[in-house]
Amino acid sequence: MLRPFDYYRPADMDEALALLGQGPEAAVLAGGTDLLVKMRRDSRRSPLVVDIKGLEECRGIGWENEHLSVGALTTFNDLLGSGEIREHFPLLIDAARVMGCCEIRQRATLGGNVVNASPGAESGSPLAVLQARVIVRGPQGSRQMPIEDFWQGVGKTALFPGELLTHVLIPRLPPGSRSAYLRRSRVRGMDLASVNVAVVVINPQVSKNRQIRVAMGAVAPMPLRARKVEAMLRGQEITPELLAGMREKIQEGLTPRVTSLRASPEYKKEMVAVLTEMALQRLLKR
């Protein structure tokens, strides 16, 4: 049983912001697949639930100049059905396919996954490696920031009370870029990622112009870019020696928490190295 609360479904943004302005404990409901679990476990209490599914402006996927704008209410099944995502950001398809299960993907939204700020969220490392930005709307208007600044810790974001995430903006990648998302989980059915890796390769065919970006999930409080590894791989011919160096470098400074239910710190560190190498091998194939 859930504790009693009031429920409103605003028809437009002004109404939504007015409701969210009523108190800092107001909860935003989109897909509900995280919020209702938290409310049932009593880790989240709220006297007021604001269902934002009536906000049409938070729906839809489309290009705006050089960014693909993805509405916060886009579900994981919507991502899987999007030709733009499939063509330009296939790593998000890899991630959406393993997010939850059919029933969860039907409800869970990209915005909710971002705001929930789970260290191993399926969309986390892909959006970090894509250098996505988020648009946030509040009583003072809207503001924008890199997604890496939006996440501030486990379950913590840069949202102020009364604010709402409305869109995720994904910059267009240069033509010919490739991307992949790989993860380990305990079981083959529905499970959260024990550890995950997202990789983008720009100019895969010409090593001197090649740029590689790597982000890791579930190894730190937030999805984490492996910037030292990126610098090490940039413009280099990929040799077995370079990959061996990468495997060491990517583990440097990583201290996954010991209390994880899904995998030991040693396993996670080993696996980010292995998954990154697997992704590179897949993406650099001619």
Binding site: G32, K53, C102, I104, Q106
Partner: peptide, 12 residues
């Protein structure tokens, strides 16, 4: 579409 009825409010 299949959904989890434990994670949806009746009012939804």
């Amino acid at each position: 579409q299949p959904v989890r009825s434990c994670l949806i409010l009746a009012v939804e």
